[in-house]
Nucleic acid binder design. Structure first.
Lengths: 237, 237
DNA sequence: AAGCAAAGGATCGTATACAATTTAGCCGCA
DNA sequence: TGCGGCTAAATTGTATACGATCCTTTGCTT
């Protein structure tokens, strides 16, 4: 029983059924970086942790592998995904590709109350940035992603929303691995600028800001190949 | 044991392992429209058909549900997905959103041999269009989708490629349900035009053509709500 | 001491078994 | 005849069991 298993156990009781519940709990743990890339998720451990059989644990891990959050290696087990630099680049390329389009659709059908909702999110982000401690950090990470997901939700396209779910979650993983500045919300104010542009109905500018925002996040990464997470290299000093 | 089970059994032996193989066989059957929307896929039947246990059959169906090709209803079973008109619209909206971007990336890094490959696909499409019979129709359907998937592959972004996999497969389902003209490749020549534009390095025009191509496919659909596949409406004449 | 081989343990892959839920058929009754 | 409830069959949800594979470690040999 490794120490990582203690990091899960999020919202235990809910209305969801079986494997889905476990999947969500583990995903939250990954997105909030309580589970770090490379961590082994053995089927037995996961099952014991949630008091279910290996069958359900396996189903949950399988589901997460479809989203690219865990990688299952045949006959070896499941691990929290460890995206390569190349994968990281593709994730952000994908986001630059689709987020402007989503933003356009969202802006075209946004309602005043939804704009209010977005502003609420911004306030929440700002508040969390002021606080200290791990809990606040995790909430901040999640809030930062929620901004993009909310826009996707407003766009009204469930399929694109699902794609964004995956991309945002995987981005969190990438930032955990390759991020340099202490916090992901380096460009937090950019979120506010985007909302402002939407409100002014300046779509072209909003899209422009969005692309730059994504590029800024990627620019904060140190996408150099890290071989075997500090083995001998750690002692070569 | 319903008649639909006879429609599956594609490539039986391959190097893939377990559930994945079954998943691919069923997906092919759905994409080639040997399995029609709404068909029930009971776990036992699928298991028997492929001579595996319900465990693997279930895993395959679960996987297909993540791709939106089958819908599993709790305690009721799995069915070939029956996309609503709204879903259909979202699928094509998504394609209009992402395919131009993919096309741009693909055109930027395409090699002469890849252009040759695309032309090969066009020839194959044309040949199949000339042939008669169900087998040729199915091959044509697949070839038509392969054109879009090949471009996604050339773009070099594995994530976008996976998204396209899903969208193309689900498009086939939508066309099977709502398509009017006998064949999906109504706008076959449009594929050729796109390749020509790529070859001339006229990206803007290529993207323009792509968007119109997708719109044409959607325009061929009759996206009116069909409540419970001809129930009372069928007798209201 | 180094290298290789075999044994052991741990973990995954798949099948089978049992419990829970739904669905369909049947009988009785108004 | 038509409706309501009950029983039984079929199907899914979950757990357990067994076989296969991989990794580690032990012990032997050179």
């Amino acid at each position: 029983m490794n120490t990582a298993t203690n990091a899960i156990q999020a919202t235990d009781d809910s209305a969801e059924s079986g494997a889905q519940q476990i999947r969500d709990a583990i995903r939250d743990a990954i997105v909030e970086r309580r589970l770090t890339p490379g961590t082994k998720l053995s089927e037995s451990d996961v099952g014991n942790l949630f008091n279910v059989s290996r069958t359900l644990a396996r189903a949950a891990l399988q589901a997460l592998s479809y989203e690219g959050l865990v990688s299952v290696e045949k006959n070896r087990g499941a691990f929290v995904a460890y995206p390569s630099p190349e994968e990281a680049r593709q994730i952000f390329a994908a986001r630059r590709l689709i987020e402007p389009g989503i933003l356009r659709e969202a802006a075209a059908r946004i309602t005043p109350s939804e704009i209010q909702h977005l502003k609420q999110l911004l306030l929440e982000e700002t508040r969390l940035m002021g606080e200290r401690g791990q809990t606040a950090r995790r909430a901040e990470i999640k809030a930062s992603g929620d901004f993009h997901l909310t826009i996707a939700a407003i766009s009204g396209n469930a399929i694109m929303q699902r794609f964004m779910d995956e991309l945002v979650a995987r981005s969190s993983l990438v930032i955990a691995l390759y991020g340099q500045s202490t916090i992901s919300s380096c460009g937090h104010s950019e979120h506010g600028d985007i909302v402002a542009a939407i409100e002014r109905n300046d779509l072209d500018h909003a899209c422009h800001l969005m692309v730059h925002h994504i590029t800024h996040i990627e620019a904060d990464l140190d996408l150099r190949e890290r071989k075997s997470q500090g083995l001998k290299e750690a002692f070569d000093v």
